[in-house]
Amino acid sequence: MTTETQDEGLEYNFAYLDEQTKRMIRRALLKAVAVPGYQVPFAGREMPMPYGWGTGGIQVTASILESEDVLKVIDQGADDTTNAVSIRKFFQRVAGIATTEKTEEATLIQTRHRIPETPLSEGQILVYQVPIPEPLRFLEPRETETRKMHALEEYGLMHVKLYEDIARHGHIATTYAYPVKVNDRYIMDPSPTPKFDNPKMNRCAALQLFGAGREKRIYAVPPYTDVVSLDFEDHPFEIQGWDQPCSICGDSTSFLDEVIMDDQGTRMFVCSDTDHCASRQAQGYQGPGQEAAE
C-alpha cells in the first residue's frame, strides 16, 4: 500500500468505499449489534491492501467513519508500527479525518491485537481486525457443521479444546484468541487479542465491532454486554501476569512486551500500549529501567 499521495488527482468517495457498499456493511453491523457475538456474513470488497493488513477492520471503519471522527489505530498496542501508520494515513487521505494516539481523545479506535489499557468510555467505538472469526474451526472444519453448532448452542467442543490444553500443559495454555461467551449465548473468538484483554471486553462501555476481511464476517459486542471467558471450575480463567513492572513507566498492571534494547541483546519488559506508557511517563512515573539509566 502506498502512503504517498501521488494520486491527488483521483477523487475518492469519503472513506474510500462507495455509499452502496457502506450501506451493505452497515446493515450487517446492525444485525451484528442486534445479535451479540453472532457472525454475520457480508459481501466484503477488495481493498487496496492485502488481507493480512486488516481489510475486515478497515471496511468496518470506512463504513461508520464520519468527518468529525478522531481516529486512533493500534497494532500490538503500538501507534507507530508500519501497519498502524499505514492505516492511519490511509484514512487521513481518503476521509480527511483527524487522528490521535491518545485513547481518551479517539472516537474510533481500530486495533489488531490489543484493547487500550485506558478504560474505554461511552460513545467510543473499538474496531477489531480479525483473521479467523470461527472459534470452532480448529476441531470442526466443516462450515455447515459449525453453523449448526452455533445455531443449536452445541458448544461442548470448546471445552474439549480447553481440556486438551490442560491435559497437555497442566493448565489452559491458550493465551491469544481465548474463547468467550457473549451475552450468555454465542461463543466468540476475540482473535487475535491476548486473553489479558478479555476482561476488558466484559461490560465495556464502548461499542466493539469485529471485521474479518478474508472470511467476510462481521460480529459485534454492544456496550455493557456480558463477555465471559470459558474455563473449568477447577481451572478458572486467569490473565497473564509478569514478575516485573514496565521498565520504562513502572506500571505493574499493564500488558508487557519483551523487547531487545541494544546490540548486546539486553532485554526488558515494557508496556505494549505505547500511549499508556507515554502518558504515565508524562505524569512522572518511572520504571526500574529508567532509574538504572540515570
Binding site: L139, H159, I166, F232
Partner: peptide
C-alpha cells in the same frame, strides 16, 4: 476425533452435557 487425545474423546459427551470440572 483423531486429533483429540483419548481422554478428550471420552470427555466430549460429558462436556457437551455441561460437565465443567476438569478433574
Amino acid at each position: 476425533r483423531m486429533t483429540v487425545s483419548a481422554g478428550g474423546n471420552v470427555g466430549e459427551r460429558l462436556m457437551a452435557g455441561g460437565a465443567r470440572h476438569y478433574g
